[in-house]
C-alpha cells in the first residue's frame, strides 16, 4: 500500500530537550493534564471536607475560616499553586483538543458510538462551564464582590462570619440553582475524569479497571451530594 498521497495530518517535531519533548508528546501532555487534575481533585475533596463543617455550627466553620486566613503567606503559596495547576490543566487540554480536531478532520455521517459515555464526550463543555462556575464562586465568596454586605459580617468573637455569608448567599434560589447546575457539571467532569487520571498515569490494569471506572463515578456523585447538601439545606431552611 505504498501510494504517495498527501496526508492532512499536522507535523509534530520533537525537541532535543527530554523535558520539552515529553510535554510535546501526546502521552506527556496527558500526564500533565492528569497530574494537575489530581491536584485539583485533592483540592475539591479538601474543600468539601472544610465546607461540610457548616453542619457542625457557625463557631466551627468561622474558626476554620480564620485558621485558613491566619496561614497568611502559606495560604497564598497554596492559592498560587492551585491557580497554576488550574491554568496548566486548561492550557494543556486546549492544546490536546486542537490536535484532536486536526487528527479527525471528518466525522462519520452516522455516529456509531459503542462505549464512550456522554460525560466523556462532553468533557470540554463541562470543563468550560465549571471554569465559569469557579470564576463566579471566587467572585462571590473569596473576593466578596457580588454582595457588599459580606465584608461587614462579623460573629460574636469578631471573626469574619462565613456561616452567615453562606446563608445570605444560598438563600437566593437562583444562586443556589446556579451552584447545583455548576456542581452537576463538575460531577460529570469528575465521573469521567477520576478514572481517566488513573488510566493516564498508567496505574490501571485489568484487575482494577472495573473498580476504577465505577469507583470514579461513585466518588464523583459523593462529591456532588456533599457539596449540594449545603445550598439545599439552606434553601429548605434546615440551616438558618
Amino acid at each position: 500500500m505504498s501510494v504517495a498521497s498527501p496526508s492532512t495530518a499536522p507535523v509534530r517535531v520533537f525537541s532535543k530537550n527530554p523535558f520539552i519533548a515529553f510535554y510535546q508528546s501526546s502521552i506527556g501532555k496527558k500526564y500533565v493534564v492528569a497530574v494537575t487534575a489530581l491536584i485539583l481533585i485533592l483540592y475539591v475533596l479538601g474543600h468539601l471536607a472544610g465546607n461540610l463543617q457548616i453542619f457542625i455550627g457557625p463557631d466551627r466553620i468561622n474558626a476554620y475560616a480564620k485558621l485558613l486566613h491566619d496561614l497568611g503567606p502559606i495560604l497564598w503559596v497554596v492559592r498560587i499553586f492551585l491557580l497554576a495547576a488550574f491554568v496548566i490543566h486548561i492550557v494543556a487540554t486546549i492544546q490536546l483538543a486542537h490536535e484532536n480536531r486536526l487528527a479527525k478532520p471528518q466525522k462519520y455521517a452516522v455516529p456509531g458510538y459503542q462505549r464512550s459515555s456522554t460525560a466523556a464526550r462532553t468533557m470540554l463543555v463541562s470543563g468550560v462551564i465549571v471554569f465559569c462556575f469557579v470564576v463566579y464562586h471566587l467572585l462571590q465568596f473569596t473576593f466578596e464582590v457580588t454582595d457588599p454586605r459580606y465584608h461587614q459580617l462579623r460573629d460574636s468573637l469578631g471573626r469574619h462570619d462565613v456561616y452567615r455569608m453562606l446563608i445570605l448567599g444560598f438563600r437566593h434560589p437562583l444562586i443556589s440553582l446556579f451552584y447545583i447546575v455548576g456542581l452537576f457539571l463538575l460531577t460529570n467532569h469528575l465521573s469521567h475524569g477520576l478514572a481517566s487520571v488513573v488510566q493516564t498515569l498508567g496505574i490501571n490494569n485489568r484487575k482494577t479497571a472495573n473498580f476504577v471506572a465505577s469507583g470514579g463515578q461513585t466518588l464523583a456523585w459523593v462529591v456532588f451530594a456533599g457539596y449540594v447538601s449545603i445550598p439545599v439545606t439552606i434553601l429548605l431552611g434546615i440551616i438558618k
Binding site: 495530518a9 501526546s26 490536535e99 487528527a103 466523556a120 478514572a195 481517566s196 493516564t200
Partner: peptide, 8 residues
C-alpha cells in the same frame, strides 16, 4: 498526526 487518547 494521530490524535490523543481521551479514554473513550
Amino acid at each position: 498526526g494521530f490524535g490523543n487518547c481521551r479514554n473513550y
